[in-house]
């Protein structure tokens, strides 16, 4: 275990301001924040313990996204987070941009939106928290996994994640319906 890092507020705002000029960086194979910020102090350790590596499974296909497996991995690794800590954008932005970059690139590839009007919104939604959106917590690519676990994990069940499976199945149905109706 080690201390979880979070992005410093000013650097988080600088990143948010510059999503568009950083478009090619969001398609990079490797995390890029250390190069981008250079010698600036851009991250800090928190008091939150985190395993040295959270092993997330990369999606196999567009239909096999492995959200249940990854919800288990994220929630079990960070089960000790309080809801207040889990509402802090700085932690999830760090995990999305740095520690779990490989997963983010495969699960939420944003290059398909590069140059399109929604690019900034999509990156903001998945790598940050969207302002003024009550659903922001379940739109960030990593925070959503923790919140799915938090709202459904029940140790009194033989499989504590049984309700998580039900929730994710229902989300799949909802998603299929909404994407069937969209262009």
């Amino acid at each position: 275990m080690s201390k979880a890092f979070f992005l410093r507020e000013a650097q988080l705002e600088r990143l948010r301001q510059n999503i568009k000029p950083n478009a090619t960086r969001y398609s990079a194979d490797k995390p890029w924040l250390a190069d981008y910020f250079g010698s600036d102090a851009w991250h800090m350790p928190s008091n939150i313990e985190i395993p040295d590596g959270i092993d997330l499974k990369l999606p196999i296909s567009k239909t096999e996204l492995l959200d249940l497996e990854n919800t288990k991995a994220v929630y079990l690794a960070l089960k000790h987070l309080t809801p207040l800590q889990a509402s802090d954008e700085r932690i999830w932005a760090y995990l999305s941009h740095v520690s779990l970059w490989d997963y983010m690139r495969k699960r939420w590839p944003v290059e398909q939106y590069a140059g399109k009007p929604r690019f900034v919104e999509i990156v903001q939604e998945r790598y940050f928290f969207m302002p003024d959106r009550p659903r922001a917590l379940i739109r960030n690519g990593i925070a959503r996994l923790w919140w799915y676990g938090f709202t459904t994990y029940d140790e009194s069940w033989p499989d504590p994640f049984e309700l998580t499976g039900v929730l994710l199945k229902n989300l799949d149905v909802m998603q299929s319906i909404s994407s069937a109706g969209s262009p």
Partner: peptide
Amino acid sequence: VPNENDDAPAMDIDTTGH
């Protein structure tokens, strides 16, 4: 913060966050 867009105005504000 800096605005790194090529066509960035001299100064701008955004109030959508905290």
